[in-house]
Design a binder for these strands. Sequence first.
DNA 1: GTAAAGTCTCACATTCATGTGAGAGTCAAG
DNA 2: CTTGACTCTCACATGAATGTGAGACTTTAC
Lengths: 130, 130
Amino acid sequence: MRIGELSRRTQIPIRMLRYYEERGLLTPQRAPSGYRHYQEADVEQATLVSSLVRSGLPTRLILPLLHDLQPNPVDGDETDDGDDDLVALFAAEFARLDSQVKCLSLSRNAVQQHLRRLRATRVSHDPTAT
Amino acid sequence: MRIGELSRRTQIPIRMLRYYEERGLLTPQRAPSGYRHYQEADVEQATLVSSLVRSGLPTRLILPLLHDLQPNPVDGDETDDGDDDLVALFAAEFARLDSQVKCLSLSRNAVQQHLRRLRATRVSHDPTAT
DNA sequence: GTAAAGTCTCACATTCATGTGAGAGTCAAG
DNA sequence: CTTGACTCTCACATGAATGTGAGACTTTAC
């Protein structure tokens, strides 16, 4: 599929799909015209990448992550050959994620509670309930 | 305590403590000299805010959240009087957080796994284990 | 073949969380 | 009082993720 369809299906702006490619997180094939052509699997991968980015993972860390998760989609160079800096980076990132998961759960609950309170005030029309 | 001490105790850069105040997320008292004076409770609050920010919550959403979590620290104006836009914002934010929590857990696990793999390659000296 | 819709590549603009430095005032210790 | 550490307020700089528009080519539908 082409970029427009992928964008529609993933809800990710075209601009971002191109950006992910620039970062090496998505590697569509190119038609002779220059048009990008995506595989079905890219729907999932794009969604994953987008989630990771929104979770605050820097794209440079997402790349090696993808290598671990799926041993093919990113055409492997030697990006993840255990170098010490990476280990440190990921250790830090892991700690961050770990605390963030807890923190986000807390936030989630707080938001939910806040939402309930807001709706209790503005009762009546919007049935977008939990 | 003054900003330097708070910074030391929370590990949050002074610049950020001032930024949080600018955003209304922390409201220290002021000495006649202009110096900020923080309460003990601000240690916790600053930490919380910092976590939320690092989790990707926009500061503008953290503010009303704080109102819910602790009914005093932020000197209440009428920021959270159920207005419809806020409801929509928070509904969206809730959905985002909900999926993000899942996503982060996934990322966390992926990072952890990746970390293990890296360490398996670079065995020997760094005992910064899980 | 023509027009409309889709895509491509720049490239600059914006927002948010941060960093950083300048210039000035404050506070504590000698 | 002087010095050094701390703080204050600007205000500009940066990096990352995004938005947006221009100018040109491609694909699709008629």
